[in-house]
Computed example of a mutant assay.
Amino acid sequence: MKIDLTGKIALVTGSNAGIGRQILQTLAASGAKVAVNYLLGSAEETVDAIRQAGGEAYAFQADATSPAELDNMVKEIEEHFGGTIDILVNNAGGMINRVPNTEMNEEHYSKVMDVNFKSCVFACKAVAAGMIAKKSGKIINVSSLAAHDGGGPGASIYAAGKAAVWSYTKGLAKELSPHGINVNAISPGFIGQTAFHATFTADAARQATIAKIPLGREGAPQDVGNVALFLASELSDYLTGEIIEINGGLFMR
Rank of each mutant, 00 (worst) to 15 (best):
L5H: 10
L5M: 05
G7Y: 08
R21C: 00
Q22K: 13
K33L: 11
Y38V: 08
L40A: 15
V47K: 05
A53G: 12
A53D: 11
G55P: 13
A59I: 07
F60V: 12
A68F: 09
V74A: 04
E78I: 10
E78L: 03
E79V: 13
H80S: 07
F81M: 08
G82R: 06
A92T: 11
G93D: 09
G94Y: 03
R98Q: 14
V99K: 09
E103Q: 13
E106H: 13
H108R: 10
S110A: 15
V112D: 08
V112P: 10
D114M: 01
V115N: 05
N116D: 14
N116G: 09
C120V: 15
K125P: 00
A133C: 11
K135F: 02
K135V: 03
K135S: 15
N141R: 00
A146Y: 01
A146S: 15
A147K: 02
G150I: 07
G154D: 04
A155K: 03
A155L: 09
I157G: 10
A159V: 03
A163Q: 04
W166R: 04
I181H: 10
N184Q: 01
P188L: 00
G189H: 00
T194P: 00
A195T: 11
A195E: 13
H197Y: 03
F200M: 01
A204F: 07
R206T: 10
I210E: 15
E218D: 14
G219D: 04
F230E: 12
L231Q: 06
S233P: 12
E234L: 08
E245N: 14
N247A: 01
R253S: 14
